[in-house]
Design a protein around this nucleic acid. Structure first.
Length: 256
DNA sequence: ATGCCTCAGCTCCTGAGA
């Protein structure tokens, strides 16, 4: 089973690239973030034509998440139950016996801002909910745009970006707290080249200079840890003419 | 440099992203 996550930064703009990517990478599940469109604008027909069922949780202008899957997803839940949130950031469902959670974590803007406070509050809400979900669904995958780096290995300039957004100790503490629930960073189960990132700024030719961050993650529960056979970041779509600033991350599970 | 790109929208500037 292959699952992937991709922040597409507008599905309306990126749909052709998503369809192209799925043709080359026929994953079982693809979690999308930053749709930037409402449910009525969601291209369900084009995706079904490509062989993918879709569960959408859209919103006007910002945010918006979706789960695409080869087999229909069931038990679909939108956002974090019990956590009051006006933004469409989380969608979860059952696919082929795996509980899949796709999430677009808040950006946080900068430490000390209201948006940073919201990010911390949201992370706490996510963790409290996931603690229960993990007891209910031992086979769980949490993937998406986390907007947090684990450590300096995930940062192109750890000195210059020390304590800046995505790199603060407060955010990293929250990320480790998620891990402490019984989750594992699938990417670090394997050896990868140094300076492997999933996001590069649009400005200053950051991708060409590989000035990036690893902020898109796939975390798997303990029950799935030994079944992970590969996890890769696919930089190819970032080389497209009008790319998303994020690259897809793919995980492979052997559930036989 | 509170910039640099990119995207959406009450669109020709602004807010937000990261």
């Amino acid at each position: 089973m292959k699952l992937a996550t991709w922040n597409v930064n507008s599905l309306a703009v990126r749909l052709p690239q998503v369809l192209d990517w799925l043709q080359v990478n026929p994953v079982d599940v693809l979690a999308l973030q930053e749709l930037k469109l409402t449910n009525d604008k969601f291209p369900a027909a084009a995706l079904l034509e490509a062989g993918y069922h879709a569960q959408c949780f859209g919103q006007k202008t910002y945010n918006g998440v979706a789960l695409l899957s080869r087999t229909p997803a069931t038990e679909v839940v939108r956002n974090i139950p019990g956590f009051d949130d006006e933004m469409a950031r989380v969608i979860s469902a059952e696919v082929q016996g795996v509980r899949v959670v796709g999430a677009y974590f808040p950006n946080g803007q900068a430490p000390g801002t209201d948006k940073f406070e919201y990010k911390m509050h949201w992370l706490k809400g996510l963790r409290d909910w996931l603690r229960q979900e993990l007891t209910k669904y031992p086979r769980l995958v949490l993937m998406g745009d986390y907007n947090i780096t684990f450590d300096d290995a995930d940062v192109w300039d750890p000195v210059g970006l020390k304590d800046s957004i995505h790199c603060t100790e407060e955010e990293r503490y929250q990320l480790r707290a998620l891990i402490a629930l019984g989750l594992v960073d699938a990417y670090r189960l394997f050896e990868h080249p140094a300076k492997s990132y999933s996001w590069w700024d649009y400005r200053e030719m950051a991708f060409r200079r590989n000035r990036g961050l690893r902020i898109d993650h796939i975390l798997v529960s303990q029950a799935l840890k030994d079944k992970v056979t590969d996890c890769e970041i696919d930089r190819a779509p970032r080389k497209n003419e009008r790319p998303s600033d994020h690259a897809p991350v793919v995980v492979e599970l052997d559930l036989t």
